[in-house]
Design a protein around this nucleic acid. Structure first.
Lengths: 203, 203
DNA sequence: TACATTATGTACCGGTCATTATGGAAATCA
DNA sequence: TGATTTCCATAATGACCGGTACATAATGTA
């Protein structure tokens, strides 16, 4: 049904590229958030009409989740790779510098798509909020597991509070995203990360 | 004009208490954000009708700024007091534990009113965002000045990057607010603060 | 009592929201 | 060619948004 790449299209072929349209939608959601992005904003940026959007992506919520997938796949890949660092400190280093590099990219919107959409808004977006929070919880759990492993490997002190350390690092990343989205300069962000790394409790 | 406490009211007296109405409005903005809070939400919580709201407070934006004043005055007073701590570490300690205590209060909404409203949303709320960001910048500047002083007093190492340290502490506070508003348990928040304090780069 | 002033409740305004029904044009198939 | 399928564009839907006229009620002053 969904995957029609193997079939030859029977009727009139689609006149726009779904991927580039999705990328355009991502930029809109990224800068304006789910509720702040109207269908007019989206269709204008995507270069398609409303019925085309609904035919191709379902509705606004489904479109958002597809852009969220794209965002995680293309923009948050450094997070997965960070967990492969040999030490806990290396993980933190890759995460912090990865977040910084992402905010330095001049062609992308500032801030974090996840952070923007995890704050409370109207009741209509409650399911959106839940979705974003759930994905964030998965990332957090990955960090907890990684730090737990670091503890057994002797990489972190045996009395380390892994929950606390994870919440601490997560808070830093969230704060970075927030400040990046609020106009904090790149030099200030770099100073933030340098300070964070100089504070990190393991070698 | 504004202060009519000395005069006897001339027309029909107001049937509701402006202060308690403002407190009710604060709770709504605090939990739903500026855009998420509709006038129906507000009037219902305040127990007044739409025209009464406009007569007493101007419009939605003016009402929001008044609730922001109330929030800063009553809920963020610990921030001003924190700057009076004798050492930089004491300042950080008071800020972090103050933020924690605030989130532990079971009768208030979770998260931070400022953080919630500093994220990007619709274009209509751009002035709101600017107002919130400006107030946040003032707080940040106060921290910078305090840490500068700590440096001259020998309380912080002479090579301390004050900008970085301030951004770092601010990021932690923002992350705490974000996680508190996202359902993170109080015990996890406490672990976050403990980890933060154990990392703090001065005695 | 008469009047000015202020607050109140009802009912409504124009505008925007996400979503969809309708209809015609265009591209594939047999 | 004819049938089928999917496209695009217009515009309508019902709900909700922030903001207001309007008439009425309650106070002060004269």
């Amino acid at each position: 049904m969904e995957i029609t790449a193997c079939h030859v299209a029977k009727g009139r072929p689609r006149e726009f590229d779904t991927d580039s349209a999705l990328t355009a939608a991502l930029r809109v959601f990224w800068t304006k958030g789910y509720e702040g992005a109207s269908l007019s904003d989206l269709t204008e940026a995507m270069g398609i009409t409303r019925p085309s959007l609904y035919a191709a992506f379902g509705n606004k919520e489904a479109l958002f989740k597809k852009t969220l997938d794209l965002y995680q796949r293309e923009k948050l890949d450094y997070m997965g790779k960070a967990l492969d660092a040999p030490t806990a400190r290396g993980v933190a280093e890759r995460l912090l510098t990865g977040a910084l590099e992402m905010q330095m990219s001049s062609c992308d919107p500032k801030g974090c798509m996840g952070v923007i959409n995890s704050v409370a808004c109207g009741t209509e977006a409650e399911s959106i909020r839940a979705e974003v929070l759930q994905r964030g919880a998965l990332v957090k759990q990955g960090l907890i597991d990684r730090f737990e492993r670091a503890k057994t490997e002797g990489d972190l002190p045996g009395d380390t509070d892994v929950i606390g350390l994870t919440a601490y690092l997560t808070a830093l990343l969230q704060g970075i995203a927030l400040q990046a989205g609020s106009g904090t300069s790149c030099t200030d962000l770099k100073a933030l990360i340098d300070t964070s790394l100089s504070c990190w409790p393991s070698k």
